[in-house]
């Protein structure tokens, strides 16, 4: 590791070209995938590749941190939010702002060309390599710098993290601005609104089942919407049993018919 040379080895070159291509593809996929969750996954892949590149560049600590913090923590946070918003929701990629896409593409291409031209223009030939800097170990070297030269920045970063944590709590915590209603107030409100004075009917009433997913039947045999949970209704997970009673009756009649028939046969045999 300490022999990390200024120039990259052939192996590193092969690794760069293969993984670099994958990274670019991942980045492009990130911005082109319709579903946010796919974008997140592509981005995570790209980040892992970047972690590999960090390692290849002698930044061992950063490579590990990249995997642990970015792909491990941050991307998971992203996924949580994506799930909150809706995993299945797909974005339309149709552009709504006039000319936005062309402008973005033009600016992007121009910007990229300029950056690349700038780097090429800089004519960087010599790489010192990190052999000497990493001599005492990469983590030790970083630690020495962080706790000496960059100690104030480091402390301030700590303050920043605390602030961010508090900020996130403040932003996401919905504060109750009014007193919670008591049971009495709720019942009075119900009377005032004038519907469902009695408690909602239990599921399965007038039916032969009393499972939560079976709508209660009204006296005329039709199922009542009120008796099942809204969630189940939206999922379409309600079992309609209104026809079951008729089927049962039919089966009963058939069975009694059979019974009667058998009796008659017995009588005839006698």
């Amino acid at each position: 590791m300490s022999a990390l040379a200024a120039a990259a080895s052939t192996g590193e070159a092969v690794q760069f070209w293969i993984l670099g291509t994958v990274a670019v593809v991942g980045a492009l996929s990130t911005i082109l995938m319709k579903k946010a969750v796919h974008s997140a996954l592509c981005l995570a892949g790209t980040m892992i590749i970047l972690a590999v590149f960090y390692l290849a560049n002698g930044a061992y600590f950063l490579g590990i941190v990249q995997i642990v913090v970015y792909t491990g923590a941050i991307m998971m946070l992203f996924l949580f939010v994506v799930m909150l918003v809706g995993v299945t929701a797909a974005d339309s990629l149709k552009e709504t702002l006039k000319g936005q896409r062309w402008l973005a593409a033009g600016c992007g291409i121009g910007f990229g060309i300029l950056l690349i031209a700038g780097i090429g223009n800089a004519g960087i030939k010599e790489f010192n390599g990190l052999g000497q800097a990493n001599a005492a170990g990469n983590v030790q070297g970083l630690a020495k710098l962080i706790f000496t030269d960059y100690v104030f920045a480091f402390e301030i970063t700590g303050a920043l993290l605390i602030t961010a944590t508090v900020g996130a709590m403040v932003l996401t915590n919905r504060e109750r601005t009014e007193r919670a209603k008591t049971q009495r107030e709720l019942s009075e409100q119900r009377v005032r609104e004038g519907k469902h004075l009695p408690p909602l009917p239990a599921p399965g009433v007038y039916a032969r089942h009393n499972a939560v997913d079976i709508a209660g039947l009204l006296p005329d045999g039709t199922p009542s919407e009120l008796t099942v949970m809204q969630t189940l209704r939206e999922r379409g997970q309600i079992r309609d049993v209104s026809t079951e009673a008729l089927n049962d009756l039919k089966a009963l009649e058939q069975r009694s018919e059979e019974r009667l028939g058998r009796d008659r046969e017995e009588e005839a045999a006698k």
Binding site: N57, L130, N138, D149
Partner: peptide, 11 residues
């Protein structure tokens, strides 16, 4: 960081 041979970039 690799180019300059020190760890400041990594910091």
């Amino acid at each position: 960081s690799r180019m300059h041979g020190n760890l400041d970039g990594q910091i």
